[in-house]
Design a protein around this nucleic acid. Structure first.
Length: 876
RNA sequence: GGGCGCAUAGCUCAGUUGGUUCAGAGCACUUGGUUUACACCCAAGGGGUCGGGGGUUCGAAUCCCUCUGCGCCCA
């Protein structure tokens, strides 16, 4: 036999992945079978595989491979996302490194660079997923900027616009001064920062008196247009309606009253800068205040900044506070911790900014999506995410869908004039010309008179269509594929994009197809390191995904990742888990190696213990299979794995193989061999979703298989009934054997030394198991007796008592001590049970069944006490 | 500031409707074994006041209240 004792994952994995691909096992085309569809959460096109990807793609692969075995037409659609802001930022940086400024390029030139970048790095991540074993239908690979995908996005934009759901508004938006674009609320990360609270004084017009206000942003006084106090604040009642003078600027502004002001905070007087604060803007609107925007788009000051014009906001903050101090306007400066919005992508501090943006009305759209989750038509797993989802969806704000970027779908709005509403929305320039002519009654309008909107759409405005658009369900809503594959089954993703993406897909599903996009949303946890830190590049605590695959093999890594990955819980990733996974794969390999190595002697009959072992494992397998089905139905994937792991490690390898294993270098009988191979095959079917490579390797090594017999496209184990008597008997047998091992250890009897076993068989355990016990315990004979044996080590299994006669002197005192302890424990337990039973209220109110159990416990314990006492007497 | 969640063995976590097998699993640990399936092995063993306090109940890890400590989301 030439099989290596250590399993070599490298060559095997490549071999079988190629085999699956060559034979189109992952390719799906609609047929008469039921479909089982998963769409991948498209990773950033230029990204590389990290731990999070490995985790959620492994889960998807487990689900899809199992569906394939179960006979569904399994279809897992892969693809990538153009990730507008992230990708654009990378391209801008690369150009900068080459000395090229993005602003010197035309749109077309910049996009050419972006496509070059995409062509160079795009799709690397998909190749990495193949190494992990992902069984995606690669022929369906999509990219959110593919022509048809973009056409879908544009069509949806136009349809929603025509429905009146998309509008253009002058709103306060989150402005990233570094990327020079707006961000959606979800892309802003709030961080605690140490800053200062500046107390400033504003002189009352025509008086020597001052009003003092507190602000964290002194530079914004340049845009102040009012001072606001609470109407109930008696300190300021007399000031309302008067005029104060803004320091440095010398602008005259009114003192107004509004209940928004928090009387407790600062001085109770608030300066109002409508251009630079969301709440100030609202107050400004209520009181018809002037709006003065003091910033340029890169957050340097504009002409309203006076002598600070051209300087950065943070520089100005320092300088102006100095000037205010020098000129006597600064009363005091306190340390102050406050939350600051930062850009998820560039880390720049977000500047609230008023600008013209495109919005999608969300409140009506959200309703069916809320209902779907409420009624579990779309089920969130684990369900704890539901309340978060409702909270967000019920307070949803209109979605700012425009971005001041180039890398993405350009908004199909065309301006024909300078007025805010002088635009039409159209699929093409020609159509826009026609529409504009109609709108303006000006038939002389030419294409060159129109100017297309420069903004592109938010990336999520393409990915929210993903489950529909990958099947071309937007452009051809009744095509065969969309009708066959949609709705999809499972979506596996992280909770961090529950709102960005998941919620919006549900919205899109109902709005565009009147149907949920998927049945289940499996939310994985974040992958953290052992110290609970998030994995990040800057910490350098993220293991290189490809190195892991290299070192532990894809199967090992998959097992390692899923061992402790209950849905929704963060997983503390520890490389030791991959080691455990690798060890498990090796275990399966060696189990196979053992079986493969047996020589058959056709003349041999099947020994009784082998028949018993096979019968037991068959029942055990079926029992565990139904547990596994139950776990799967609840999407408890790590429980499925752990249950399967124990079945194979303990039951199959630890017990069955040891039972049927012939003596060293002896042949095996043909019946046992055939049966154990069939059981091994079932094990391989069961494990295939988790460890596709090793199972295929073993499967194909058991015998020569035709292409259509490959495990990858084989069937899930059918299962069957399990014989309860066999299972119960065997449990007892296992305890008996375990007892022998304990005694051997305590008495230091080496396993190679045979022993005798005598049993008082109160449980009436069938004596047909004696040969099995003999084999597993290296027992020379099992004798049923009726009296305690003196000079023997003893142990009890339920009411049965076992004796192992000891040669030579035995330590009577130690044995007595052991029995004493056992007796004490039993008596204590008995007292508890009897106390319960003597409690009339317990007997009266507990269900009959529960009382019966307690009574049985009492009887069993009494019997046990009796045997222990008898043993002690025999020893003395 | 608003919302959601968590706390069980050294670590990571199960524990579903309050009641059998309720105090469990895996890893780690300790001890012992190793005439070839596998030291990536086998066996046995120790280890927890179920975060603290109070309540409901015949009975609470489980339900309720409260305190403490953490985490996440949103503003």
């Amino acid at each position: 036999m030439s099989l290596a004792s250590k399993y070599d994952s490298k060559t095997t994995e490549e071999k079988w992945y190629n085999y699956w691909i060559e034979n189109d096992f992952f390719t799906s085309i609609p047929d008469e079978r039921e479909s089982y569809t998963i769409v991948i959460p498209p990773p950033n096109v230029t990204g590389v595989l990290h731990m999070g990807h490995m985790l959620n793609n492994t889960i998807q692969d487990v689900l899809i491979r199992r569906a394939r075995l179960k006979g569904y037409n399994a279809c897992w659609v892969p693809g990538t996302d153009h990730a507008s802001i992230a990708t654009e930022a990378k391209v801008v940086k690369k150009l900068k490194d080459q000395g090229i400024d993005k602003n010197d390029l035309t749109r077309e030139e910049f996009l050419q660079h972006a496509w070059d970048w995409t062509d160079e790095y795009g799709g690397i991540i998909l190749e990495q997923l193949k190494k992990l074993g992902a069984s995606c239908d690669w022929s369906r690979t999509k990219f959110t900027l593919d022509d048809d995908m973009s056409a879908s996005v544009i069509k949806v934009f136009i349809d929603l616009y025509n429905k009146g759901l998309i509008y253009r508004g002058y709103r306060m938006v989150n402005w990233d001064p570094e990327a020079k674009t707006t961000l959606s609320d979800e892309e802003v990360i709030y961080e605690e920062r140490n800053g200062h609270l500046y107390h400033l004084k504003y002189q009352l017009k025509g008086s020597e008196d001052f009003v003092s206000i507190a602000t964290t942003r002194p530079e914004t006084i340049l845009g102040d247009t009012a001072i606001c106090v609470h109407p109930d604040d008696e300190r300021y009642t007399s000031l309302v309606g008067k005029t104060v003078i803004v320091p440095i600027v010398n602008r005259e502004i009114p003192v107004i009253a509004d209940p928004y002001v928090d009387m407790e905070f600062g001085t109770g007087a608030l300066k109002i800068t409508p251009a630079h604060d969301e709440n100030d803007k609202i107050i400004g609107e209520t009181h018809h205040l002037e709006v003065i925007d003091i910033f340029n788009e890169d957050a340097t000051l504009n002409s309203f900044g006076l002598h600070y014009e051209g300087k950065d906001r943070f520089v100005v903050r320092k300088e102006i506070s100095k000037e205010l101090e020098d000129r006597g306007f600064l009363i005091k400066k306190e340390d102050h911790v406050h939350k600051v919005g930062t850009s998820e992508r560039t880390n720049a501090v977000i500047e609230p900014r008023l600008s013209d943006q495109w919005f999608l009305k969300m409140d009506e759209l959200a309703k069916p999506a809320i209902k779907a989750v409420k009624e579990d038509i779309v089920e969130l797993l684990p369900p704890k995410f539901k309340s978060t989802y409702f909270h967000w969806m019920e307070n949803v704000r209109d979605w700012n869908i425009s971005r001041q970027l180039m890398w993405g779908q350009r908004i199909p709005a065309y301006y024909y004039g300078d007025g805010k509403d002088d635009f039409v929305v159209a699929t093409s320039l020609d159509e826009a010309v026609a529409l504009s002519r109609k709108r303006t009654n000006n038939n002389n309008l030419l294409p060159e008179d129109l100017r297309q909107e420069n903004d592109v759409l938010d990336t999520w405005f393409s990915s929210w269509l993903w489950p529909i658009s990958v099947f071309n369900g937007i452009l051809e809503p009744e095509n065969e594929e969309i009708n066959y594959y949609y709705p999809t089954r499972d979506l596996v993703t992280g909770p961090d994009i529950l709102f960005f993406w998941v919620a919006r897909m549900i919205v899109a599903g109902y709005e565009l197809r009147g149907e949920r996009p998927f049945d289940k949303v499996y939310l994985t946890g974040l992958v953290r390191d052992k110290q609970r830190r998030k994995m990040s590049k800057s910490l350098g605590n993220s293991p290189d995904a490809l190195n892991l695959l290299e070192e532990y093999g894809a199967d090992g890594v998959r097992v390692g990742l899923l061992l402790s990955a209950a849905a929704g819980n963060d997983i503390m990733f520890d490389e030791d888990l991959c080691q455990q996974g690798k060890g498990f794969v090796n275990k399966m390999w060696n189990a196979f190696r053992l079986i493969k190595g047996w020589q058959v002697d056709k003349s041999l009959e099947q020994p009784q213990h082998a028949a018993q072992g096979i019968a037991w494992y068959t029942s055990r397998f079926n029992q565990v299979l139904s547990e596994i089905e139950d776990h799967y139905s609840k999407y408890r994937i790590s429980d499925v794995l752990m249950t399967s792991y124990k079945l194979i490690y303990d039951d199959f390898c630890g017990w069955l193989l040891e039972i049927i294993k012939p003596e060293y270098q002896q042949p095996i009988d043909p019946k046992t061999l055939a049966e154990v191979i069939a059981l091994l095959e079932d094990n391989m079917r069961l494990m295939h979703p988790f460890t596709p490579f090793i199972t295929e390797e073993i499967w194909q090594s058991i015998s020569n298989r035709k292409v259509e017999e490959a495990l990858c496209i084989n069937t899930w184990p059918e299962g069957g009934t399990s014989d309860q008597t066999v299972l119960t008997d065997f449990e007892l047998v296992q305890e008996v054997i375990s007892g022998i091992r304990t005694v051997r250890k305590e008495k230091q009897i080496a396993f190679k030394n045979q022993i005798e076993l005598k049993a008082i068989n109160n449980e009436d355990l069938d004596t047909k198991y004696n040969s099995l016990i003999q084999k597993m315990g290296n027992v020379i004979s099992v004798e049923i007796i009726s009296e305690q044996v003196a000079g023997a080590a003893s142990y009890r299994v339920r009411s049965n008592e076992y004796f192992i006669p000891l040669e030579g002197n035995m330590d009577v005192a130690a044995e007595l001590e052991k029995l004493e302890a056992e007796l004490k424990r039993a008596k204590g337990f008995l007292i508890g049970v009897q106390k319960k039973l003597s409690n009339e209220r317990f007997v009266g109110s507990a269900p009959e069944q529960v009382v019966a159990i307690e009574k049985k416990k009492e009887a069993d314990t009494l019997a046990k006490i009796e045997t222990i006492e008898a043993s002690m007497k025999a020893l003395k």
